[in-house]
Design a protein around this nucleic acid. Structure first.
Lengths: 193, 193
DNA sequence: TCTAGAAGTTACAGACCGGTAACACCCTAG
DNA sequence: CTAGGGTGTTACCGGTCTGTAACTTCTAGA
């Protein structure tokens, strides 16, 4: 019978997707497993059959988020094949879009702040994934022919990270409103020298 | 008798100070009122005689933090009276010091991330205090004779905010390690034009 | 059609949370 | 000395949290 519609999604995936959304909106400590499973149209037992613990679920969510970010980078390459500078500008545009449409910041950064226990299992994963993203941005800057690629990449990273958290504390009219101008200015000035 | 030593601190102040420290280290949702009062050498009833609720305590803590920040700015003025550019450099140095010695980020930003409920009473206070800090940095930049003072101030703000959160996710060896170089470079380049 | 495994249901354990009530104590101001 | 306010103590309420046990129902594949 196969059910033509893609309606029938595995409970595990429904839980994962729902958890990502709810963790993103309300924070990790702000949402319980009961609320997740109910929103996912399933129950707690099924969750614990697929994930060892809530912490494990959190980690899987972070990995999924990193995976989505990967897709973003592939889109840059697909839309501007070979043109690394255009991809860098696309990165800025994507970041700005995220700022405007989202409101809540980066899931990994938020998680790092929320999970202050230094030995929390998610911290390893967060560091790992953030490091990978950093490396990728550095490569992009280097391939775009920018001198001091590391410095530009790190500056852009901090600007975006700062804009995301500033958005949540001061609001959208705060410093984060100038993100694009700052980023584009930096790229121009780094390319000039 | 008066007790010559300053040993005898009011329970309210002990609670406030202890709560600030524990909220800072473990987050707001990561520490309960019982733990606070026990660490402060008192009990829950006394806490609730001085503060309406945990949320109220959180807000008082944030105000106290803002007050400490005010003291910092007065120190800049005292150490470099009239020399606004020197005060700006002192701000950068202070920020870098904070990054190295602290590890956890800005209490207000962390609180904003943790308290994702848009109607949480602390959010008003956070926005208010962050806005005040922003205004002050803009003024400092302007008085230091920088063109586009707002843009420089906002860029420095985002860089610092980003460095604080990056420190918690990627670690101290990440992009935040370059904070001073970025900030000083920006100041130089904004003054040049 | 029959069966095995996945998923749903209900109930519960044990811990912690914020917040309150009632009462005993101490210390200081008068 | 005494009265009263600030403080400490204990117990408790109702709620929520993560995680588990035992059992039933569904569904897909042979």
């Amino acid at each position: 019978m196969e059910d033509g519609t893609a309606e029938r999604i595995r409970p595990r995936d429904r839980i994962l997707e729902t958890a990502r959304d709810m963790f993103h909106k309300h924070g990790i400590k702000g949402v319980g497993v009961d609320a997740i499973t109910e929103a996912a149209g399933t129950n707690k037992m099924t969750l614990y059959r697929h994930f060892e613990s809530k912490d494990d679920l959190v980690i899987e969510c972070l990995r999924a988020t990193a995976c989505s970010a990967n897709a973003m980078w592939q889109k840059f390459e697909a839309e501007h094949p070979g043109d690394k500078l255009a991809q860098l500008h696309a990165w800025v545009r994507m970041a700005a879009d995220c700022l405007l449409t989202d409101g809540r910041g980066c899931d990994m950064a938020n998680a790092a702040i929320e999970l202050s226990e230094t030995d929390h299992p998610a911290r390893r994963v967060i560091k790992e994934l953030k490091q990978a993203q950093r490396d990728r941005l550095v490569s992009l800057c280097r391939d775009a022919g920018v001198g001091q690629a590391e410095l530009l990449a790190d500056t852009l990273s901090l600007l975006l990270e700062g804009a995301r958290v500033s958005m949540q504390s001061v609001g959208a009219e705060g410093p984060s409103a100038q993100f694009v101008r700052m980023a584009e200015g930096l790229i121009t000035s780094f390319r000039a020298r």
